[in-house]
Design a protein around this nucleic acid. Structure first.
Length: 260
DNA sequence: CGTCCTGTTATCGG
DNA sequence: GCCGATAACAGGAC
């Protein structure tokens, strides 16, 4: 379930649990999502110490003695830290074992994720055009980006990872719902005040979502997320939620609150 | 059985 | 070159 808030949750599973721990073994159960040759991946990691973690959009970078392990979760991945071998999660693909007999599992049901050893994360971010993280972007930057994306539908602009990284199908729906914007509105049709409102709502919903996940609570009921179904109603006005296909993704929205 | 899915990428036509 | 639509990638859930 990985958009920015979930990925941040995964990062917190890694950090602090594995920080300063020594890698004693790397078990590769299935190398489908591993983009670095198995042998090299193992050799570069065993014996090394986990230094730090960072996240940009939906990517996690784990720093290991100057190099980085990149994690991307596709549509269904996650990571799990655990202390007993018997707790090994189902669909574990790669398991990092530490010298204190604890484990970090990289899990993937479908095989859309990515695990890769890279030399420098800044180079990677530039080469792969991963835009600034949604939680780091400044208002000025956000306005510039929206100006650059003015020909796009609002939903597509928000989901473009090279413009702003971290927002996917779910959170773009939430953001548009909370600012009362119909998903197929072109960015150029929005007033400056609306763009500014989008910026502040973007920060708010991501922070609230991270907090909810951290405290293991469901997302607030006045979010559209718990009502993303054609059989459900708008938490504000009770109108039946509608579904719309945009660029082969389904957008859920309230036809009354989100004016065209 | 068919449908659905919270991501990314390539390709095509406009 | 940008934009939107589509297919492809896989496999489990319902």
């Amino acid at each position: 379930m990985p958009e920015l808030p979930s990925v941040e949750d995964f990062r917190k599973e890694i950090d602090p649990n594995t920080i300063n721990k020594k890698i004693s073994d790397v078990r590769i159960i299935d190398d489908y999502i591993l983009k670095t040759p198995k042998k090299r991946f193992k050799e570069e990691m065993v014996g090394k110490i986990i230094k730090s973690t960072s996240r940009r959009g939906k990517y996690i970078f784990i720093e290991i003695d100057g190099k980085y392990v990149l994690l991307h979760f596709g549509m269904s991945g996650e990571v799990k830290f655990y202390k007993r071998k018997s707790e090994q999660p189902e669909y574990s693909k790669i398991i990092i074992e530490f010298s204190d007999n604890t484990f970090l599992s990289i899990i993937s049901i479908r095989k859309f994720g990515k695990v890769e050893l890279i030399d420098d994360y800044k180079t990677y971010v530039n080469e792969n055009e991963i835009g600034p993280d949604a939680l780091d972007v400044s208002l000025e930057e956000f306005k510039e980006i929206m100006d650059y994306k003015k020909r796009s539908y609002a939903k597509n602009a928000l989901m473009d990872q090279s413009a702003i990284s971290g927002i996917g199908n779910i959170f773009s729906d939430e953001l548009l719902f909370q600012v009362n914007v119909f998903p197929k509105t072109k960015i150029s049709q929005l007033e400056t005040e609306k763009i500014e409102q989008m910026y502040s709502v973007m920060k708010d919903i991501l922070k609230v979502a991270i907090e909810s996940r951290l405290s293991d609570k469901p997302y607030p009921n006045d979010f559209i997320i718990p009502h993303r179904s054609r059989d459900d109603n708008c938490p504000v006005c009770s109108t039946n939620i509608k579904r719309l296909k945009i660029s082969s993704r389904h957008a859920f929205y309230c036809p009354k609150c989100q004016i065209k």
